[in-house]
Design a protein around this nucleic acid. Sequence first.
DNA 1: GCTTGACCTAGAGCCGACTCTAGATCCTAG
DNA 2: CTAGGATCTAGAGTCGGCTCTAGGTCAAGC
Lengths: 158, 158
Amino acid sequence: MAEVTTSLSIGQVAERTGLSVHALRYYEHEGLLVNPVRRGPGGRRVYSQDDVDWLTVCIILRASGMPLPALRRYANLVRQGAGNEEERLTLMREHQAHVTTQIGKLAECLDLIRFKVGVYEDLLDPDSAGDHQCHAPIPSAPAQPTEIRIGYARVSGS
Amino acid sequence: MAEVTTSLSIGQVAERTGLSVHALRYYEHEGLLVNPVRRGPGGRRVYSQDDVDWLTVCIILRASGMPLPALRRYANLVRQGAGNEEERLTLMREHQAHVTTQIGKLAECLDLIRFKVGVYEDLLDPDSAGDHQCHAPIPSAPAQPTEIRIGYARVSGS
DNA sequence: GCTTGACCTAGAGCCGACTCTAGATCCTAG
DNA sequence: CTAGGATCTAGAGTCGGCTCTAGGTCAAGC
């Protein structure tokens, strides 16, 4: 039963999160951490396991396309402590919706990509040609104004 | 049987693709189009249906995360005409793989997000609390160096 | 004849998310 | 004592992908 509190240097945290030390400092500076990292002698950052856990959450949210401002809002809510669970829920649900539709869009795109792959495969090996179908067809551009956005929200209309 | 060749102004193409006129000129300038757009009187761009179709493909590839350089390579291959189908196939397969793993990653992230949503839901309505499981758990940071990249390739090691 | 609006080119500016640099501090090993 | 390596801060630079501006041309309508 040793090791009551893990204490990691920024370098160690960088190693095990995959974030660069620069990014770690940047994240802290941007207020993405629930609490500003503890400092050891000489003003050096000392990370706890909690910090690493939180960073892991951050990384996953980032990887799913959550922009830093949203991450900051979330961190703020968590920092304020219990009582704002509704807001957190809203934020997470919004992100969930975002990720879900993003997956849907990617799946649609994949449909075209598979179609193209099939076409080229057939061209290169015409014997075993199957007939391919692309359900999100190229012909005739989308009637809906296309609204294909990789990011979060439409920022400004053109 | 009128209308043998569609001729659209850049504004019309912008409308029906959702790209801005700026983006359209930019794409052309960047060599993303199979052939440089025809010009009408006064040097104005005149788009054909083929151009629009190609742009639609571009939009889908972009929406699935293909970077402009890859799109340019693809356009170059198509421009060169028949004979390089292998290369096109390779390019498309690579992109397919990329999109597939991206969908996988997003699904993993979604797992955590759903978990969080569940936790907050329970907190706000403890009666109907279920037990939640997050299969890509927060506890204990990933042993693998995390390599969560939203974009295409690792550009430069830190 | 003049205004309006869509278009043209070349190039500057912007945004998000880092990444890198400079110059200083500190700890450890030789 | 000193050299090396990890850390610190503040701020500049980078990159991708557009977006915007300036300054100019052209056709149509009043």
